[in-house]
């Protein structure tokens, strides 16, 4: 952590001196970690993001800069089902399948998105939860807004799709810090972080970072064993069960 901060400070200094004959605007940013290990006591994690805006030759916007950070988890297929009445019962009768849906979306900014840029601009740039869910070309009826909205609603309730318009803080007009909050049930995999700089309602520049969420040693080992040698895993689990059952009968023996 300290080494990272030092590296970051060094990067900041570097940009300050090296960019004297600067041209376009740019962002230099770093995450407090690029790997989130899931230990047995994992209940979620906060990743900090630090960034510096390099204004280049451009004038500083009169309202100040805006930052929108999009954190996107690994994409996968999702099936959305709807319960419908069937006689007296309510059963899962209708379903839509979606592909390339991010398992996690978090959009953090320094103020509400609708005040940073207009809806069309944001949609073009794929900024916002809805804009990150690609229109479905193959699946029958998947673009049905009822199902699409339901998927977003459920993921929001689970804390997997979030928006936070106060999670980016400007420390100086060109230095910012953001918090990325990962919930306990965060999906595993590779995450993309896109940092977009807005100036007067238009995109000035953007840059990307990456981090990984992976299980730590013991958890990873158990999960891998369950998948790599499933029969052995089942046998071992049964053996442990027998051992515990036997131990209990030894400890509590009364006759």
């Amino acid at each position: 952590m300290i080494a990272r901060l030092a590296a970051f400070a060094f990067a900041c200094l570097l940009t300050m001196f090296a960019s004297a004959p600067a041209q376009a605007q740019s962002i230099v940013a770093t995450l407090s970690t690029d790997n989130v290990p899931i230990l047995s006591n994992f209940t979620g994690e906060r990743i900090a993001l630090f960034g510096v805006i390099e204004p280049g030759n451009n004038l500083r916007p009169k309202d100040g800069y805006d930052i929108v950070i999009t954190v996107r988890g690994p994409r996968g297929a999702v099936t959305v089902r709807r319960k419908e009445q069937w006689g007296l019962m309510w059963l899962n009768l209708d379903a839509r399948r979606y592909i390339a849906i991010p398992a996690f979306i978090s959009i953090v900014s320094n103020r509400p998105l609708n005040r940073i840029a207009q809806a069309e601009v944001r949609d073009d740039l794929r900024i916002g939860v809805d804009a990150l869910i690609p229109p479905q070309a193959v699946s029958r009826g998947a673009n049905d807004p009822v199902f699409r909205d339901a998927m977003q609603r459920i993921r929001r309730q689970q804390g997997l799709f979030t928006e936070g318009d106060n999670k980016v803080r400007f420390i100086t007009p060109t230095v910012f810090r953001a918090n990325i909050d990962l919930p306990g049930a965060v999906p595993l995999g590779a995450y993309d972080v896109e940092i977009a700089l807005f100036s007067d309602g238009a995109l000035a520049t953007r840059t990307n970072l990456k981090f990984n969420v992976s299980k730590d040693a013991v958890e990873q080992w158990v999960a891998e064993a369950a998948h790599r040698s499933p029969i052995l895993y089942g046998a071992a689990t049964s053996l442990i069960a027998l051992l515990i059952g036997w131990l209990a009968s030894v400890i509590f023996r009364r006759d």
Binding site: P74, A77, V78, R81, E84, M89
Partner: peptide, 19 residues
């Protein structure tokens, strides 16, 4: 669960993950 109207009629399950 089966005989009363559900509060949330929808459910979403991740069926595949690209890791």
């Amino acid at each position: 669960d089966v005989f009363t109207p559900p509060r949330e009629a929808f459910s979403a399950t991740q069926t595949e993950t690209g890791r």
